[in-house]
Design a protein around this nucleic acid. Sequence first.
DNA 1: CTCATAAAGTACGCGACTGTATCTAACGGT
DNA 2: ACCGTTAGATACAGTCGCGTACTTTATGAG
Lengths: 222, 222
Amino acid sequence: MNLNRTRPPSEGSSRDGGATRRRGAKLEDAILDAAWEVLTEHGYHGFTYEAIAARAGTSRPVLYRRWPRRQDLLLATLSKFWRLIDVPDTGSLREDAIGFLRNADADRAGMITLMSVQLEEYFRDTGTSLGELRDTLLPPGLPSAFETIVARAVERGELPDAPRSPRVLNLPLDLLRHDLLLTMRPVPDETITEIVDEVWLPLLGRPAQASPGKRPTGNVST
Amino acid sequence: MNLNRTRPPSEGSSRDGGATRRRGAKLEDAILDAAWEVLTEHGYHGFTYEAIAARAGTSRPVLYRRWPRRQDLLLATLSKFWRLIDVPDTGSLREDAIGFLRNADADRAGMITLMSVQLEEYFRDTGTSLGELRDTLLPPGLPSAFETIVARAVERGELPDAPRSPRVLNLPLDLLRHDLLLTMRPVPDETITEIVDEVWLPLLGRPAQASPGKRPTGNVST
DNA sequence: CTCATAAAGTACGCGACTGTATCTAACGGT
DNA sequence: ACCGTTAGATACAGTCGCGTACTTTATGAG
């Protein structure tokens, strides 16, 4: 990785041009920004005090003082950059679902990939898993996106008011996430419509959309 | 040139107590065994020439001679220990599906976990993904487990002979894998029956099993 | 303006791992 | 019994990251 070890003595290195020495919150912000960049670019493996300090134009002890363990720094970084995914409200069950999945794909392609496959050591160190980490980052008690989407469809009379298991409700996001995890890339749009039209809507009791000329698009499955 | 390299006269640290010196295939086997142990215990992060050589009771140059890059060694190790999952043949679509998922859960809980979450650097190094790795390890052209299961059900007349997309066919394994990836633990058996009874069978046009007293079991979904 | 002090920045020693080179001795085929 | 092959041991130069002494400097209270 070889981020310049030998640091010229003068200001050249600090990002702020060396005018004032950053302190407190300002410095902290800069560090977390740097940490996020390092994390997305190099994964948790490259998420070292060394690299982050260099990137932020500061020194390791500054980081150690604030976050004595790597996990602390990671959590702080993730908290700062974690965003909820927008749930669209188009007036159509199908469009809501597809729209949400598109947002999820766009927002999380990097995110999820990152979390899952890059955090190896983190999960090893902490004995936790991707699911648990997400639970700690997610606001608790919030209805899931697809709960919201289905509830609205019920209100509109688009779906009957029947009980549905979380498994069925959240199927689309699970499938999208599955594909993201396996491919580590954003999924093609056909995958999204496939999930909604071939799996989810039929399961909810809506007939599959008659898309003419539909061929089975390859999926990542065994 | 190079006089007096102090050399202790006797043999030293090899595992075999110095009796015989392993060569060729035998040695190679021992190394790959050691590599597999290291990989499962410490993940790809701990999968170092150093650790593997030590574990195998040999020295790094021996490994470098055979597998010049870490990836080569990894591939060799995985190839040696990769096993296909048994597909049961019970005469019932549902039982076949559930049985296979149970096998997959048992066989792959460690495996998948490993592959996904431990191989971070490998995927980074090679620019590949979990899916691609699986494709290189999987015998090509083989029908997927659920293709087999469904084909047999069609033969028995349990299902109509209609075209079905890979997405729908492989849904159960995708969902199982998803849960494995998120939790990094074997899934509870209810998850398996839930996937089959609430999702897959209904999708294939079979009514859900009437399991009395069924409550929605929590899943890992958002 | 001064100066205590909190925080930034520096330096050091350590350990893990890499990749290669070199020497030796055991093994095993002919 | 010979001798080519190669395991096995060790060394070395280099990189990277760790954690914590220690030193310097900016800032704001008095």
